[in-house]
């Protein structure tokens, strides 16, 4: 468990890689003709944890879903601007969304294991993507890395749904790891979990960032301050049509966002004065 002072140490001790893992350049998102997100510019550093915080409905998750093109699956959703993954525009015509999703994994708000055995939950993604290696080994490694191996090693044939909520979420993380992505997107991964399970996931994230770039959406500001290196604060304003238009207010090292934000808005939010 880290405290609020730790993120600085972590980000300082990490060598900053030359190019960001993910980069947004003027990304706007529309549902039909209604704008949902306005012009986001953002660099996500590799091998760090970046947190998206902000009030409900400000579009944090929508922005997150741009990174693995799951917005494509929502009828009527449209993304303008550029999203780069290690320099390649993810929305270029030549980029295949299925391959994007293998390279940029995702963990959802509500644990959603497949209604299959624990083993199959891990093996499924690898198999459909043509994994050539030793499947048993991959399953074990993924479950170990997600810190759930000891709890499930004797019941790999049992249903993934037979596990507790916290275990299911770690199974989903193992499932995401199994296809060997470079980035893991986490959409409020702990919001359905109790504090003990939340702690385990947070510890896990600290271990995982050695190998993966992690972007996490969270409602929980303590969580953002505990786990993340960088924090992006989003907010939304009411539009004339009665909708909400989300935008990025401030993006900085987590310690600056929480102790010395540049915007008054951010200060009010992180100090709990509104929202």
């Amino acid at each position: 468990m880290t405290n609020i002072a730790n993120p600085t140490m972590i980000s300082d001790s990490q060598p900053h890689l030359q190019e960001p893992a993910l980069k947004m350049e003027g990304v706007s998102i529309f549902y039909g003709s209604t704008p949902a997100i306005r012009e986001v510019y953002l660099d996500i550093p590799a091998h760090q944890i970046t947190a998206f915080i902000g009030p409900s409905g400000c579009g944090k998750s929508t922005v997150l879903r741009c990174f693995n093109r799951t917005n494509d699956l929502i009828p009527g959703a449209k993304v303008t601007g550029n999203v780069f993954f290690r320099g390649v525009n993810l929305y270029s015509k030549k980029v295949d969304p299925v391959e994007v999703r293998r390279r940029i994994g995702m963990v959802f708000q509500k644990p959603n294991p497949f209604p299959k055995s624990i083993y199959e939950n891990i093996a499924f993604g690898a198999r459909i993507n043509g994994y050539q290696g030793d499947m048993d080994q991959l399953v074990e490694n993924s479950l170990r890395r997600a810190a759930i191996w000891d709890e499930v090693k004797d019941k790999l044939k049992d249903s993934g749904l037979s596990l507790s909520g916290g275990q299911q979420q770690r199974l989903c993380i193992a499932r995401a790891i199994a296809i060997q992505p470079e980035v893991i997107l986490m959409d409020e991964p702990c919001s359905a979990l109790d504090p003990i399970s939340t702690l385990r996931i947070e510890e896990l994230m600290q271990e995982l960032k050695e190998q993966y770039t992690i972007v996490i959406v969270t409602h929980n500001m303590q969580q953002a301050s505990r786990v993340s290196d960088k924090t992006a604060f989003f907010n939304a304003e009411a539009t004339e049509q009665g909708g909400k238009l989300g935008f990025l207010v401030e993006y900085d090292d987590t310690v600056n966002i929480f102790t010395n934000p540049k915007q008054d808005f951010t200060r009010d939010y992180v100090s709990g004065r509104f929202g």
């Binding site: 799951t70 699956l73 999703r101 293998r102 994994g105 959802f108 459909i128 499932r175 995401a176 296809i179």
Partner: peptide, 19 residues
Amino acid sequence: SLRQGGFAVGATRWQVIRN
């Protein structure tokens, strides 16, 4: 959520439906 989980591990539409 099951469909989304399937797409998130890089399944195509038919793989999600079939499996």
